[in-house]
């Protein structure tokens, strides 16, 4: 269960204040997939980082399983799993070594980690290359290793940051199946993506982010009722259009 309340974060960029996230609140229940949607620069990654405790919010706070992350940000991390677009692998380690390394980082006892590794090897179909060095893996194989890495400590909450970016249809399908698996296991999943079509397929509820604020929130039906549009893509185009109209430009009205 994730509860974010009034999160705000600003950065200083070349002497100017840039508000990346402006008082965002949302809740993700157990077994629920929440889509944090928005174009590039909407504040999705910053929000995820605050949920992870990698960034301290300037205002607001996050609760994971009822415990505020700012009270003990380190301890709360064992409750979270993270899979991101940019995730890489250690080229000189074997898959097994890498997964056991992350189990150690999450302080999972060795026998427990070994059982979990076997289970994940079956589930994500990575057994055949468990003892191969990561540098020899294909993109799809690397992706499955990354997904396994996120589950080595069996976290109740999973954060997915643009997990399908750069993947082909087969790769994306693996991710969708993975999300289904998470859901079935009752995990709270926070998914950030700008692939709205995919989001429609896997998310239970959505938060549409634009310029660091949540513009619409709810299930797909709620949003349809709210905006009068059928697809998320159309809702977004409306948002961006509103944005353009509100900013007068030299060519406006021409």
């Amino acid at each position: 269960m994730i509860v974010a309340k009034g999160l705000r974060k600003q950065f200083m960029v070349r002497g100017q204040t840039l508000v990346a996230v402006d008082r965002i609140s949302f809740t993700v229940g157990n077994g629920e997939v929440y889509g944090l949607l928005g174009p590039n620069g909407a504040g999705k990654t910053t929000t995820l980082r605050m949920v992870m405790g990698l960034l301290d919010p300037d205002e607001g706070h996050v609760e994971i399983g009822g415990v505020r992350t700012d009270i003990d940000p380190i301890a709360i991390r064992s409750q979270l799993g993270l899979i991101s677009t940019n995730d890489g692998v250690y080229p000189w380690l074997t898959v097994r070594e890498m997964l056991m390394y992350f189990a150690d980082l999450y302080a999972v006892e060795v026998p427990v980690a070994q059982i979990r590794l076997e289970e994940l090897a079956e589930l994500l179909n990575i057994r055949s290359f468990l003892d191969q060095r990561c540098s020899t893996l294909s993109t799809g194989q690397k992706q499955r290793v990354t997904l396994a890495r996120g589950l080595m400590h069996d976290p109740p909450v999973m954060l997915l940051d643009e997990p399908t970016r750069g993947l082909d249809v087969v790769g994306s399908q693996t991710v969708f199946e993975f999300i289904d698996l998470l859901k079935k296991r009752g995990k709270s999943v926070l998914l950030s993506t700008h692939r709205l079509d995919e989001a429609e397929r896997v998310c239970d509820r959505f938060g549409l982010l634009h310029h660091g604020t949540v513009r619409y929130e709810g299930t797909l039906d709620d949003l349809r009722t709210l905006t009068g549009k059928y697809h998320l893509v159309d809702m977004f185009i409306d948002l961006i259009r509103e944005d353009r109209q509100s900013v007068p430009s030299p060519t406006a009205g021409a």
Partner: peptide, 18 residues
């Protein structure tokens, strides 16, 4: 550069230990 930093520091392992 390999993209393993974020996953590593997102773990509860203290940075000093890392």
């Amino acid at each position: 550069e390999r993209g393993t930093m974020e996953a590593m520091i997102a773990t509860p392992a203290p940075r000093f230990v890392l």
